[in-house]
């Protein structure tokens, strides 16, 4: 109970400070819109390759971009935590009875809600560009759930790394190291049918690909078994990342 209350109070604080950075908000909304336009134009021709199997590239890429947003927004969640460490905010909180888990959970919640907002913008835009959600409202909700889960996983990892290393440069480098390879080792922008065999194998164990598959199946509403399996795997991954973050937090406190 204390955990949920504290998470909420700390979340409100983060929402407040995010709202006070209108440029940041504007950019984080513009970014996925830009990606949609760029990727949609640049790769529009791949749909004509035999075996791609999609009605239109926008239809294919909309759920993929939603997941991409989750990845890129949440990966740097640890930066805010570092600012709290350096500014003494974290120490001030730790000297109060605030729930320890809530400190990381509020950041994860912020990353997830930001991503849901961004994914929403993407979906609305995709609709105007001609994409249709065949999976209905439930499918769309599951798409957003997949994006939120992946965002939570990456936000946890990012916060965990921030607590372990306490260096901005290291967190940025480590997250950059993961984000792009995981993007390209998935069916985010390219159909699985057209991947080289080794990438297809790697994609099978790539959490980003699980999120992409779940999002795309939610959008298309075709293969519900695949949707359920991917979501289950993704949830497991998110849980592992959350445990990592909690462990990192304990380690941070022990080091003091």
């Amino acid at each position: 109970m204390d955990f949920f209350k504290d998470t909420w109070y700390l979340y409100i604080r983060l929402v407040r400070l995010t709202r006070r950075m209108p440029v940041f908000l504007l950019l984080s909304i513009m970014q996925p819109v830009l990606w949609m336009l760029l990727f949609g134009q640049l790769f529009a021709a791949v749909i004509t390759i035999p075996g791609f199997e999609a009605d239109s590239y926008i239809q294919f890429i909309a759920p993929g971009i939603a997941i991409m947003t989750a990845l890129f927004s949440a990966a740097y969640s640890g930066m805010g935590l570092l600012r709290d460490i350096e500014g003494g905010v974290l120490d001030r909180l730790l000297a109060t009875p605030v729930s320890r888990g809530a400190i990381v959970a509020s950041r994860v919640l912020l990353a997830s809600s930001q991503v849901v907002l961004q994914a929403g913008v993407i979906l609305v835009m995709a609709f105007f560009l001609g994409a249709r959600p065949h999976g209905g409202v439930l499918g769309l909700l599951l798409l957003l759930l997949a994006a939120a889960l992946l965002a939570a996983a990456f936000a946890s990892t990012s916060c965990g790394l921030a607590l372990l290393t306490r260096r901005q440069e290291l967190v940025i480098a480590a997250m950059n190291f993961m984000v792009l390879p995981m993007t390209f080792l998935s069916s985010m922008i390219m159909s699985q049918n057209l991947m080289p065999a080794w990438i297809r194998t790697m994609a099978r164990v790539n959490p980003v690909n699980w999120a992409v598959i779940a999002a795309r199946q939610g959008f298309e509403g075709q293969n519900l078994t695949e949707l359920a399996t991917s979501l289950a795997l993704l949830s497991g991954f998110t849980l592992v990342c959350a445990i990592f973050a909690v462990q990192a937090f304990h380690r941070y406190q022990r080091a003091m």
Binding site: I12, R13, R16, G87, T96
Partner: peptide, 26 residues
């Protein structure tokens, strides 16, 4: 506890800082 550096969050208002602190203590 009043730490050596400031423990207030610079990006929210003074009142909001006090509010959060009070909420933590219920």
């Amino acid at each position: 506890y009043i730490a050596q550096g400031s423990g207030g969050d610079p990006l929210i208002t003074g009142r909001e800082n006090l509010q959060l602190q009070g909420q933590i203590f219920r």
